[in-house]
Amino acid sequence: MWHKRFSHIYLEDGVERYPLTRTILGRLSKAKVVTVRNYKDIFARSGQNFQIQKRSPKLILARKKNNLIYEGSMVSQDFGYRNFYYNSLLLNCVYNCDYCYLQGMYPSGNMVVFVNEEDFYQATLKAIEFRPFQEEPLYLCISYDTDLLAYETVVPYATRFIEFTRSQEDLVIELRTKSANWRPLEDVIPNERCILAWTLSPPMVAKAYEQLTPSPEQRIQAIKHCIDRGWPVRLCFDPVLRIKDWEKVYVKFFKEVFKLLPAEKIRDVSLGVFRMNADYYKRIKKQRTDSDILFYPFESSQSLISYPVDERLHMIETLKAALVKFLPAEKIATWT
């Protein structure tokens, strides 16, 4: 009944000249190509249904004209880096996790790829030059509003940004992913300043709430492979969900993870409970009533919704106590 995923590619006027456009069109040669004057004419149409579009998402190739780099948000962890920034090379993700804020942040379930990669590199160089704390590197998260590695076989941004970072001494990047696809990184020389950050959830959480993602077992295999090759790896147990028997489920999962992965070779761990911008949450709740985790009696504070403060403090304390059995506390960054 449904068209295949990425059955159509919408090309914004003028993007034909970018090499990345040609690469992507070559890799999706069977897709129907539709021209569009401005990518927002399709991505930002009113009344779109994010979840229905996710059944057959389309690709939109566009040029990002401004805001090529953003300051880090309060919802995210800076891991002690004071020059904390992120960028949006892609909008939206190939996965469809129930707890994902993107479904409330974007008006569309379609995916945008900004193909003017050179402009992003230039913006990064400028940010490095003018970073407020000159004695510290620029810390740039390149895979926040998407999952770059998951779509690397079509849009080779992850490996290209890693190569760009290699030549920039004052740049540290984080590539966050749920992908198990380590192959694109096979020919890339590991770099201490390129942190591969895997989001991990217990198998029952992944199965129930992380649609289209590889299983945690597959992700752990990919992590193991990358650790063996010498990549710095971060594990993100984030978001932790307040499911039934959450304590047992997560503690058991930590044990399984560190049975398979050498804890001493993990660069650091991030631990955070589910939270979301309140406006995004309101939008999501209007569109879907099919996911119990979105219907917890949350508390709202400072434009964020999350579990009531005493509950989330208890969750973080309990799970941090479980993690320090494997890693020193200073390696565990928490969000409460």
């Binding site: 009944m1 449904w2 068209h3 295949k4 059955s7 159509h8 919408y10 129907k32 539709v34 569009v36 004057r37 004419d41 399709i42 149409r45 779109q48 229905i52 579009q53 059944r55 057959s56 389309k58």
Partner: peptide, 14 residues
């Protein structure tokens, strides 16, 4: 320009 969503598979030309 206006764009209907092309979600449902069919045998017609586009």
């Amino acid at each position: 320009e206006f764009f209907p969503d092309m979600l449902i598979n069919h045998s017609l030309q586009e």
